[in-house]
Structures are given as C-alpha cells and as structure tokens.
Write a protein that binds this DNA or RNA. Structure first.
Length: 111
DNA sequence: AGTATGACAGTCA
DNA sequence: CTGACTGCCATAC
C-alpha cells in the first residue's frame, strides 16, 4: 500500500468523531471527495485495527449496522465500546442511529 | 496491465 | 421489509 493517503484521511475523520456519536462509511467517503468509495473506507478501517487511536467502532454502515464488529475481538467488543459511550446497540444495529449520526461533511465544514 | 477483493451504497424484485 | 445484484473507487497480487 502507499504511505497512507486515503487511509490516513479516513483515520483523521474517524478520530474526530465526537464521543457518543457515530458516522457512516458513505459520509466519510463523501467527505474525502469520493462518495462511491465507501468500500475503501471499510478497507481503511480494516487496516485501522492495526493502527490504534482509531475509534472504528464509531463507524458503521448506512443502516447503522455493526457490520465490521467481527473485525474487532470477534464478538461483542464493538457493541460494548459503543455502549460505553451511551450508544445503545440492538442486534448489531445502533439504536436511534439517525439521532447519533455525525456527518463530517457538515460538522467539519462548519469549522 | 489486468484481475480479484473489500467493515459499502443504491436500486429492484 | 428482506434478499440479491450492480456500480464504483482504491489497493494488493
């Protein structure tokens, strides 16, 4: 892989997700300028588990589903991390996802 | 240079 | 509403 580029951007955005908030792959991808590369975001986060300091548990798919939870410790670690931030998780899905959703395209551009 | 893959997204049946 | 298919971008081999 390259030095970083795309991945690093994903990390930067993910690390800026506020406590108790979540975002989606599509939102990050769009923020990076490539709305269709949501899969790349997923890949980036996949590599992020090698890179610490990246709260990947705050990143879920557009449905609010914890699709990549098995990339963590394998079981309910991701859910526990989210619940530690007052984010309720039901059946691998974030409760009130729309309410907790944090869009970098809006939040970061304001700053 | 071409093919395969990925923690997705959007659309259709 | 759920399941399946296609599209798109970037990386790895």
């Amino acid at each position: 892989m390259k030095n970083d580029g795309f991945f690093l951007k994903v990390y930067e955005v993910t690390k800026q997700v506020p406590f108790g908030r979540v975002t989606s792959y599509g939102a990050i991808a769009k923020f990076l300028g490539t709305p269709r590369s949501a899969r790349m975001v997923g890949w980036a986060l996949n590599a992020s588990h090698l890179n610490h300091s990246v709260p990947a548990h705050r990143v879920v798919n557009r449905n609010g589903l914890l699709t990549g939870k098995h990339h963590f410790n394998g079981t309910n670690l991701m859910q526990q991390l989210l619940e530690s931030e007052n984010i309720l998780v039901k059946k691998n899905a974030i409760v009130e996802f729309e309410r907790l959703f944090w869009d970098p395209n809006i939040e970061l551009k304001r700053q």
